[in-house]
């Protein structure tokens, strides 16, 4: 079920770049989307609900929109940059996923391009010297971004050709579903391990910026350094402090 704040019943993303996280190892892709939303101060335009999504409700996750309430699937837009970021806050229910995925693809199939972010288990990288990044892109995405993807100085990702991305959740299935609809789509993932994945999240955002600097524009002017904002929902990422009574 789509809910938009402007009460519209359809979503126009025809000239938008859509970024979707998969729920992957270490939740790194969702954390990366958190960084994107908080850093670019994107505005919430609506949300999605479906039996595949465990409902959540609570205080706002971001400082720049203090009156919002979190929900399982949120839609954020940067109108100037023509950017739409989907954020998931709950794992999916596997037996409903196919239905939700087809509805999601139907909703976003008019997008200019779709980027799916994900992660895979670090131990799945068989050659340690290889890049920790891998990607998969549809033919029309490769064509549109030939200059960036062909620039070996800039992009050092390995092209993934396997049948599964272990730890990547539904990323590959979602990629295939968009590809079937002829939507220019790229799946970008990093090999990583469970733990404090906040660094992986910022690395994913930086890497994405290499490809999409024209609309992400996260590099602050001048020295080329990044300015990322950490959302307040990242407080106590590993739970409360250990009580002193234990010692």
């Amino acid at each position: 079920m789509l809910f938009l704040k402007n009460k519209s019943t359809s979503l126009d993303v025809s000239d938008h770049t859509v970024i979707i996280p998969s729920i992957c190892v270490g939740n790194a892709a969702q954390l990366a989307c958190d960084l994107l939303i908080a850093s670019k101060q994107l505005h919430r335009i609506g949300s999605l609900s479906h039996p595949a999504l465990i409902p959540v409700y609570g205080p706002s996750a971001y400082q720049h929109e203090p009156n919002e309430k979190v929900s399982s699937c949120e839609l954020y837009e940067g109108a100037e940059d023509k950017l739409l970021v989907v954020q998931f806050r709950a794992p999916w229910i596997a037996r409903h996923t196919a239905s939700f995925q087809s509805q999601l693809v139907e909703l976003l199939k008019s997008a200019r391009r779709v980027v799916i972010l994900s992660g895979s288990f670090g131990f799945e990288r068989r050659v340690i010297e290889e890049s920790p990044w891998a990607y998969r892109a549809s033919a029309n995405f490769k064509e549109a971004h030939a200059a960036q993807l062909g620039n070996s100085e800039l992009i050092k990702w390995k092209e993934h050709t396997g049948e599964a991305i272990y730890g990547g959740g539904n990323a590959l299935q979602l990629f295939k579903a968009f590809d079937e609809q002829k939507v220019p789509v790229m799946l970008l993932f990093r090999y990583l391990l469970e733990g404090d994945n906040s660094t992986d999240a910022s690395l994913i955002v930086r890497e994405l910026n290499e490809l999409c600097e024209d609309f992400l524009q996260l590099r602050s002017s001048g020295d080329g350094s990044f300015k990322l904002t950490v959302p307040k929902s990242w407080n106590l990422l590993f739970g409360n402090d250990v009580t002193e009574l234990l010692f």
Partner: peptide, 23 residues
């Protein structure tokens, strides 16, 4: 013990996802 992915609450692995019967 290889951890399963966090993607699915009902503990489904990536390689069995496509074979799940709809609810």
């Amino acid at each position: 013990n290889i951890p399963s992915s966090r993607a699915f609450w009902d503990d489904c692995d990536e390689d069995e996802f496509e074979n799940i019967t709809p609810a």
